[in-house]
């Protein structure tokens, strides 16, 4: 399998000209021993797009993201990313004993500048919390730090795993708005990986549905919302686990 080096490609696309997606995953297969976690998965994220990947627990969403970030090696298939990818992990995964400011700065390990000013501008609440130990923050605040940390790497694509996990709905909405703004103003592409299909389809223009390692459905969010199968499984009131 091939992971293209994360060279920064041409500036954010303007939609005209050739369609070269920022991220393209082609027939990805990932195995754990004899079990197959991802089976022939293909998807794309274009420049400036917000794309959702919906799936229940165990569908393979985290596996996919871990493969994208290089933590897991795929058995076959290809991944090609024409830009930098930053992965916001499920459950935030901060450095609990370090303060917010340190957490942010560490996100810039491979970046040119360690200055978190931009992140503080995006999430003004974090300014007051800069010296607070990350372990002591609320869920929403932690999520902002996690996203901020990922943004410090100056990525072209932000992949977020389970944004809504453990967060109150209003907090999720607020963070969602931040993401939309980032996408609109800075052209940041977003891959939103979610159990919460309603949220994902609301924020993103296009979506894939992942079921037990396979892409079960894909298309514009508006279409997917109408599909009865999707409605039953993900939007119909019972929580898919």
């Amino acid at each position: 399998m091939v992971l293209s080096p994360a060279a920064s490609g041409p500036p954010a696309g303007d939609g005209t000209g050739e369609h070269t997606p920022l991220l393209s995953v082609d027939r990805l297969v990932v195995r754990y021993g004899a079990a197959v976690a991802l089976d022939d998965v293909s998807l794309e994220v274009g420049r400036g797009e917000m794309v959702a990947l919906i799936g229940a627990n165990g569908a393979g969403k985290t596996t996919l993201l871990n493969t994208l970030s290089g933590i897991i090696t795929a058995s076959s298939g290809a991944i090609s990313c024409r830009g930098r990818l930053a992965h916001v992990p499920e459950g935030r995964e901060l450095f609990p004993d370090l303060c917010v400011d340190d957490n942010l700065r560490l996100g810039a390990w491979k970046a040119a500048s360690r200055d978190p000013a931009d992140v503080y501008e995006l999430f003004p609440k974090l300014r007051d919390l800069a010296r607070r130990r990350a372990g002591y923050l609320s869920g929403g605040e932690q999520q902002m730090v996690a996203i901020g940390r990922a943004l410090m790497a100056k990525p072209d694509l932000l992949a977020i795993d389970e944004l809504s996990q453990g967060l109150a709905p209003n907090v999720v909405q607020e963070i969602g708005r931040y993401l939309v703004r980032l996408n609109a103003d800075a052209g940041l592409s977003v891959l939103l990986v979610e159990q919460n299909a309603r949220l994902a389809l609301e924020l993103c223009s296009r979506a894939y549905v992942l079921e037990t390692g396979r892409i079960a459905a894909e298309g514009p969010s508006s279409h997917l919302k109408e599909q009865p199968a999707v409605q039953r499984a993900y939007l119909g009131g019972h929580v898919a686990t």
Binding site: S69, E93, F95, L106, G107, W109, R149, A150
Partner: peptide, 12 residues
């Protein structure tokens, strides 16, 4: 030390 997974994701 505290979170090798997150450290790795941050490029460390």
């Amino acid at each position: 030390a505290s979170n090798p997974y997150a450290a790795r994701l941050s490029g460390i």
